[in-house]
Simulated scan of single mutants.
Amino acid sequence: MPLVVPGINSSLGDKNNEWAQKLVGKKISESSSDTFAKKDLPENHRILRAGDPATMDFRPDRLNVLLDETDTVRDVNFG
């Protein structure tokens, strides 16, 4: 069962949905041509590919951008 913290979990879900709509299915690049530019991501973010090591610390303000094998965004989450 997930941890429920009033005032935090509901806003995280809203932010997840917002960023998922912007990013899922797109590629991330340094510039903003036909992809999504890294500079447009929140300051606190990390980009992870399948198999990349990642710390398990929970940071509710950090956007995790999860890429597939073709470097296309497959999912996002905060934490």
Rank of each mutant, 00 (worst) to 15 (best):
N16H: 12
E18A: 13
G7F: 12
N44M: 08
R74G: 01
L3H: 14
V65R: 00
D68I: 04
L23K: 00
N64D: 10
G7V: 13
V65A: 05
W19F: 15
K39R: 11
K15C: 05
K15Q: 12
P6Q: 09
K26C: 04
S10D: 15
L12Y: 07
G13V: 08
G51W: 03
D71N: 14
P42R: 11
D75Q: 10
E69S: 08
L41Q: 05
R62Q: 11
I47S: 01
T55G: 15
N17E: 15
K22V: 12
R62F: 04
P6L: 09
N16P: 01
N9V: 10
N44T: 10
F78T: 00
S29A: 14
T72G: 02
N64W: 04
S32E: 11
T55E: 08
V4W: 09
M56P: 00
R46Y: 02
L66Q: 06
D61P: 02
L66V: 11
I47F: 02
P2N: 13
S32H: 07
N64A: 07
I28D: 02
P2T: 15
E18F: 15
E18C: 06
K26E: 04
D14Y: 07
N64F: 08
M1I: 13
L48Q: 05
D57E: 13
S31D: 13
A54L: 01
N44P: 04
L63D: 02
I8K: 11
M1Y: 11
